[in-house]
Design a protein around this nucleic acid. Structure first.
Lengths: 181, 181
DNA sequence: TCCGACATGTAAGGTGTTACATGATTTC
DNA sequence: GAAATCATGTAACACCTTACATGTCGGA
């Protein structure tokens, strides 16, 4: 499938980036749904260059530091577009270690189970406020964010990430009540 | 982290299973949140045996077919319990190829974007009816399913899987309306 | 008698993480 | 001057999927 390949092509389609920049992007908004470490990104960029999907220029930062600034090629754009319109099957497993523990809940006492769920609720709750702020920033700029807005992709990932967390939390709260004790 | 190790220990804690049985379990309810292929399971069982967390008896099926039936050891139970009560950090990335495409939506025309989202909605919708049935089966048996019920873990994964899909679908519907066109 | 399910394994290759390794630039 | 950030790469290892490989059992 080589999803990382398309993630990089998609990022470069929005503008020129160095390997370091791409690493940073994966720590921001898109990081909620895809990410990679620099140790995976640099070899992938090398491969994409060899395949002709991207190209780079060396830019000098300061006096000595060499930086490779990558751009997507026409071939790369074609490849990206093909993937965007290709049907990608929905995986039947979305791995979630907490839910695996939840499935084995019978191996715990009622108190332990309640603690497990409460810990999860607390940790999940922390992310929400931050996401809510980002989304309001975006909606404050231009309401409503529409398809033609350059921020629409950003809006999509933020709103989805927020709702995913909200749904998880409301389920956790109901299950904690059900565990009782 | 070796999550597969704990997944296997958790399954064996509920009862004796062969490698084939474990493979089957990952195709059922827990498969929504964790799974592995038999090619990963058999070597892991060998390793867990060497480590003393599980043990097996050879059982003859029919006249010739040898089957290894695994059980969890006391050491394995201790190890499972330690993991169940250990804090596992929530990963900040939950990979989702569709959301990656959504982030790159600006590289598509309005028609292509709408098609992408509608295809996703259609595929996600197919799973729901099936999940709803399973859950109703469970709730029909004993309402409400409580902590002390042997089906509580099953209930947790089913209800979470169903709500996850419902949340995804309602978001998709709203975004399709927003794309317009 | 054939087919699908039961049953167990290994090999090769792709994907992803952690650690190793180095150096320049900017900010306090 | 020290620390954080910018910048690029490789090595080792863990995890996961696809394919290879073999054979039995039960039912239609």
């Amino acid at each position: 499938m080589r999803v990382l390949k398309y993630a990089i092509l998609g990022l470069l389609d929005k503008g020129q980036l160095s390997g370091y920049d791409i690493t940073s992007k994966f720590k921001e908004e898109i990081g909620h749904f895809w990410s990679a470490k620099h140790s995976q990104i640099y070899p992938e960029l090398k491969k994409l260059t060899e395949e002709g999907f991207v190209e780079y220029q060396i830019v000098i930062q300061g006096t000595k530091l060499e930086k490779k600034v990558y751009s997507i090629t026409e071939l790369g754009k074609k490849e990206l577009h093909e993937w965007m319109n290709r049907y990608s099957p929905i995986p039947d497993t979305q791995k979630d270690e907490f839910m695996l523990k939840a499935y084995f809940v019978s191996s715990l006492s009622q108190e332990e189970a309640k603690q497990l769920f409460k810990d999860q609720l607390e940790k999940r709750g922390q992310a929400i406020a931050f996401l809510e702020e980002r989304l309001q920033e975006l909606e404050g700029k231009e309401e409503p964010v529409s398809f033609s807005s350059p921020d629409f992709g950003h809006y999509l990932v933020l709103s989805r990430a927020l709702e995913r967390e909200k749904g998880y939390i409301s389920w956790l709260e109901r299950m904690i009540a059900k565990i009782g004790g």
